[in-house]
């Protein structure tokens, strides 16, 4: 089912229009130029607002302030730190199990992204291209189940994991992240829907099995959606807080993920030293750099994915 808007994306048409527009810009009046300048001003102001907290937290991850020889880690009112240093990072690596948290999260993220991607693509393909009796039924069920916010039943999940003797393990977290991931198949289904059926039918005529068609024909041309799915499921564990907190428990700090570990630096009394905002900032920076880079590099796929999903509803 081609989206009707696609028709307007006809490239030659678009180029022509762009050309027309360029001519227009040249003949723009002064008022038009003024509005462009205004737009730039607005964009700069907005960018400052958007970047302000981010720059702030980066600056303060390098803050090294002492009072009578005691390290000051709480939030302070000056925007620029008075003195810079790597103390936060050193303290993070030596006084907390941050390195463990980082690799725990990496471990969980790696596995859950492998499992989730496989599951999501499988389900999406089935729902999009394979015809079988209960298809409609499964679709409806999936929609209804998807409505029940996952963490509402977190206590029950906790006890199920417990009877499997799996609580306080990273494996449990992988299981929870991947198990239901197949339900998030809509975007990928939308992608598969656009692939023309004729492609599949001609392969069938050549005697290919469904498995062959899926792995040899469909997957190779599905790079955008594979990357989109993988990106979301890989970054998920770095961002999730609730499941990690409940399933991994509060006391065994060695097995926490970064989100749980860093949260307690600004909340709660796990740390005898109280609020450790600058250490939190340092940890956040280490977590954010790879994740944000990944996002920005894969931006195109992400945007494609979310927009297609949204417009379909």
């Amino acid at each position: 089912m081609m989206n009707q808007t696609e028709t307007h994306l006809n490239p030659s048409n678009k180029v022509m229009l762009e050309g027309m527009k360029d001519k227009k810009i040249k003949s723009q009046s002064a008022s038009n130029r003024r509005s462009t300048i205004l737009a730039y001003v607005a964009l700069v102001v907005l960018s400052v607002i958007w970047l302000y907290p981010i720059v702030w937290i980066v600056l303060h991850s390098f803050r090294a302030e002492f009072r009578d020889g005691i390290f000051v880690g709480i939030v302070v009112s000056n925007y620029f730190p008075r003195s810079f240093g790597l103390d936060n990072f050193i303290r993070l690596f030596t006084m907390t199990p941050f390195i463990r948290w980082f690799f725990n999260t990496l471990f969980v993220a790696t596995f859950s992204f492998i499992f989730s991607t496989v599951l999501v693509l499988s389900v999406a393909y089935v729902m999009s291209k394979l015809k079988f009796k209960q298809r409609k039924f499964f679709l409806n069920i999936a929609i209804i189940i998807g409505l029940f916010p996952g963490f509402m039943s977190i206590i029950a999940i906790y006890y199920i994991l417990k009877s499997l003797n799996l609580t306080e393990t990273l494996f449990a977290l992988i299981l929870v992240y991947s198990a239901g991931s197949g339900l998030g198949f809509y975007v990928a289904k939308g992608f598969f829907d656009i692939i023309p059926n004729s492609l599949i039918e001609s392969a069938r005529l050549d005697g290919a099995t469904n498995a062959k068609i899926f792995t040899k024909i469909i997957l190779p041309i599905s790079k955008p959606i594979i990357i989109y799915t993988a990106l979301l499921s890989f970054t998920g564990p770095w961002m999730d807080f609730i499941f990690a907190r409940v399933i991994l428990g509060e006391t065994n700090r060695e097995i926490h993920t970064v989100a749980v570990g860093l949260y307690y630096m600004v909340h709660g009394s796990q740390y005898a030293d109280g609020n450790q905002f600058t250490m939190f900032a340092a940890g956040s920076l280490i977590v954010a750099i790879p994740i944000v880079t990944l996002f920005l590099v894969m931006q195109r796929y992400y945007i494609e994915g979310v927009t297609s999903g949204a417009v379909k509803g």
Binding site: V126, I157, G180
Partner: peptide
């Protein structure tokens, strides 16, 4: 093929979504 592809998800959803939801 659909059975092969759906089974892991069905199992996962039964254990970690439907069962807990019923339970709640």
């Amino acid at each position: 093929f659909h059975i092969l592809l759906l089974t892991p998800t069905i199992l996962g959803v039964l254990t970690f979504t439907i069962l807990p939801t019923l339970f709640m």
